[in-house]
Design a protein around this nucleic acid. Structure first.
Lengths: 254, 254
DNA sequence: CGCAGTTTTGAGACTGATCAATGCCTGTGG
DNA sequence: CCACAGGCATTGATCAGTCTCAAAACTGCG
């Protein structure tokens, strides 16, 4: 029997896939019953992880792949001397660990920000998925291509936007993603990361990130009090960030 | 009959896939004859593009996908005011335009650096590929995951490395990629980009990029005279760049 | 109540940006 | 075969955005 990674434990509620909470969200596409049947077999269980748990570690491999059912995670890489770059944040519906199933080894790490509930899949069955369910294989490719898009955006941000634009951009895009998942309330969300996380995602220092956020607060574009984030002037943020928003077409998940 | 994009023309030599020059390179995986047969049908022709040609344009879609047979390209995004971020460079074997086939619209552009010979595929047949050739579908996902890895590296570079480390890193990794493709001669390659391209890939200004390259030359780690690039002290570069090189396992291409 | 982790603020240092020439190739036409 | 143009590369001087260091003020939690 497999041990769960430290900081995690198998969930005792093993929701059947037809009852999956993600299905209630209209941004996600629906499954045929044949697909559903396969995914149910593909799924090996559920896992609950505490905040701050390392789900996947750079340089190692994992027998499992995950879909986030609940909570926030982030992907990151580090330099030997401790400098950290956060590559992207992950939320419900996001797929984690494609790398292990393709290259056998991670080249980045994944850590939880909140308590996270994960749907666990067996890496071994990925091949069956490609073999027997081309639509699902296409979905996995879709998810990989989407991640690539998000990375392209992040790279443009870190490489070419000013500090103020960077903060405006990341804040707006994270809010936007959360909104599509129905995690917002009016113009408010719960942002579970620290300013240090933001700084590491933006290629800035924590101090300068703090001062930059303050500028946005002073301009009355946002409010942010202990994890409670509020967008006050979305249009101004979008313009400031040069945010190029996509229309939320229904998206797949596994 | 379809027009070719400006700056390109159909090649008159339509190499059959079994004769594909990429097959001669041992870094690429081999195909079964069944796969080869499908790819031959998937391929709709060859295209030759001049240097500086825009192959794919942000915001548009394309009926075609490409594999680079010969030459160099780069992917980039721009901000309205002209700031440009180069996301990655592409070389023989790299697959271009996955985005169009998945999202119907590019969110970045692709431009050639050299004269480029492309293998052209029809976007419409992608679905057939997933449906009938799971191994090839897996290969496409492999390629997408690899691009994601390269982006992860670039993001770490731009976000957290110093100017000197950045230049050392990009130079080393491009050399490494070219070397695996057999495009190097001893420790020399032909680098077809300008310092402005490098700067835009690294999130630096052209002037500072120039001064930084000079430091590497002064330290006798590299030589670089009119496109002819030579690595003089690879180990020192690897250490300076914190370059984490992967072992070149055989890779797929389409 | 007190700790530990965050956030906030200020001062000074420094990396990298900008501006502005100048120099250097390479290809072209006379 | 030389002169010239245009694109790049190189260099110096100055400027500014961001970093580092350091300390103080919060906040949530045991």
């Amino acid at each position: 029997m497999k041990l769960s990674p430290p900081g995690t434990k198998p969930s005792n509620s093993q929701t059947p896939c037809e009852k999956c909470s993600l299905l209630k969200n209209s941004t996600f596409r629906k499954f045929t019953s044949k697909e559903m049947g396969f995914i149910q077999k593909f799924k090996t269980g559920e896992l609950v992880a505490d905040p701050g748990t390392t789900l996947l570690l750079d340089g190692t491999n994992s027998a499992h792949l995950y879909t986030i059912l609940t909570g926030w995670i982030f992907r990151y890489k580090m330099l030997e001397d401790g400098r950290r770059q956060i590559l992207n944040f992950g939320m419900p519906g996001d797929f984690i660990g494609l790398q292990t199933s393709i290259f056998n080894e991670m080249d980045h790490s994944v850590e939880t920000l909140t308590e996270v509930v994960l749907c666990v899949f067996s890496r071994e069955k990925v091949w069956t998925l490609f073999n027997k369910h081309p639509e699902l294989a296409f979905d996995i490719t879709w998810l990989a291509a989407r991640e690539e898009r998000l990375l392209d955006d992040n790279l443009l941000t870190v490489g070419r936007r000013t500090a103020l634009e960077r903060v405006a951009f990341i804040i707006t895009s994270l809010f936007h993603r959360a909104e599509q998942l129905g995690m917002t309330n009016k113009n408010e969300v719960y942002f579970p990361f620290t300013q240090t996380h933001l700084a590491d995602a933006l290629g800035l220092s924590q101090v300068h990130t703090n001062k930059t956020i303050k500028k946005l607060v002073d301009k009355r574009l946002i409010e942010w009090k202990s994890s409670k984030f509020k967008i006050k002037d979305r249009d101004a943020l979008i313009e400031l960030a040069h945010y190029d928003h996509e229309d939320p077409t229904p998206r797949p998940f596994i």
